[in-house]
């Protein structure tokens, strides 16, 4: 009986330590992704349909810390000027020049595709993984960690599970697999061209595949600038409608 109790305690301790480890890795991954104080990025987004036909969108984005992002299309003409402001407390605003004013985005809409791409509004939201997901398990696989995440009860998402492959050396995610309610993988994000720029690890090419539709979107950073001292004022509705 004593042996059983000891075994149970050992298992519990191991489980606790294991879970904590996964959480720590998740935390380190967030710290790596969001290490720059701020980022100013120009983006080229190429959307491929299932026949391989492509269309290109261009955008600028500003990011500050974990939770403030402003994203704005610059082309094509039908999309130019459309902007999204992502703020803490699940607040997202959409600005459409034709509509002439900002509009709140309901969180139910965050699972929809963003501007015809394979990224959803949720994917584009500026929020750390740890804020949205709990780390469930961690595996070692060669030079990589395999991290399994489950959405927090407070986070409304169509994804029921995320499996992230990240480098042990830099904690930067290489691949993210997204699963639906039936535990079927529905999307896959591959981060490419991962390199260290200055003090920060960064991927400058992202490919999101929608496995259900056979489509994919490639997002490439055509220019990136770090720590230029962006003020909080840049991440306001004022700036969203001003540009």
């Amino acid at each position: 009986m004593k042996a059983l109790v000891v075994l149970f305690l050992v298992n519990l301790t191991a489980l606790f330590a294991f879970g904590q480890n996964a959480t720590e890795v998740l935390k380190k991954m967030d710290e790596t992704i969001y290490a720059p104080k701020d980022q100013t990025i120009s983006i080229k987004m190429t959307i491929y349909d299932k026949n391989g036909k492509s269309s290109v969108r261009e955008a600028n984005t500003l990011q500050k810390g974990y939770d403030k992002r402003i994203f704005r299309f610059t082309s094509p003409a039908s999309q130019a000027g459309i902007g999204i402001l992502s703020l803490p407390n699940d607040v997202m605003y959409l600005y459409m020049p034709a509509y002439e004013k900002e509009r709140r985005i309901a969180s139910s809409a965050k699972n929809q595709n963003f501007a015809g791409s394979d990224f959803s509004y949720d994917d584009m939201e500026s929020k750390s993984y740890a804020e949205k997901y709990d780390a469930i398990s961690l595996k070692n696989e060669g030079n990589d960690y395999i991290l399994e995440l489950k959405p927090k009860p407070t986070h409304q998402t169509d994804y029921t599970k995320l499996i992230i492959t990240l480098g042990k050396d830099n904690y930067y995610p290489k691949k993210v697999q997204y699963f639906d309610k039936s535990n079927k993988q529905i999307k896959e994000l591959n981060n490419q061209k991962i390199e260290k720029k200055g003090n920060y690890w960064v991927a400058t090419l992202f490919e999101m595949k929608d496995l259900r539709k056979g489509t994919r979107t490639v997002m490439e950073f055509t220019s990136v600038k770090y720590d230029s001292g962006l003020s909080d004022d840049e991440f306001t509705v004022r700036k969203l409608v001003q540009k």
């Binding site: 985005i105 139910s108 409304q156």
Partner: peptide, 11 residues
């Protein structure tokens, strides 16, 4: 007034 409740956009 505009807000968000359990995924529902409300105004």
């Amino acid at each position: 007034i505009a807000g968000n409740l359990k995924g529902l956009g409300l105004w």
